[in-house]
């Protein structure tokens, strides 16, 4: 397995996440798209970290970064779900299209 193959998978994940965020109408799906992009970056970090270090002395910075991303993505998701829940309570739906109070 080469670093290129891992990077390709990450790039595909990134594109899927982007597509998901831009096209999905459901707020929870949008959140899932964001998570996909974050995890694509995560995969990159781990891949670079494994392939740049030497055996026995891996480059650790990338792995530390990946752990930080996991923690902060969880915090972000918690806040996002709370916001989505508040929207559901008020409107009974989580469709992004129904949110049009704020317009020009």
């Amino acid at each position: 397995m080469t670093v290129q193959s891992v990077l390709s998978v990450a790039a595909i994940l990134f594109s899927l996440g982007l597509y998901c965020v831009l096209t999905r109408k459901n707020a929870v799906s949008v959140l899932m798209g964001v998570e996909l992009i974050l995890n694509a970056a995560n995969l990159n970090f781990v891949a670079f970290s494994s392939f740049t270090g030497t055996i026995g002395a891996p480059e650790v910075a990338g792995r530390v970064f990946a752990v930080m991303i996991i923690v902060l993505a969880a915090a972000e998701a918690a806040v996002a779900l709370a916001i989505i829940l508040a929207i559901f309570r008020r409107m009974g739906t989580v469709e992004v299209d129904n949110l049009n109070e704020l317009r020009e």
Binding site: I37, A41, N44, F45, F48, A61, G62, F65
Partner: peptide
């Protein structure tokens, strides 16, 4: 986006 950019720079 920031993270993906940082990942590539790091790589």
């Amino acid at each position: 986006f920031l993270l993906y950019g940082i990942a590539l720079l790091y790589g």
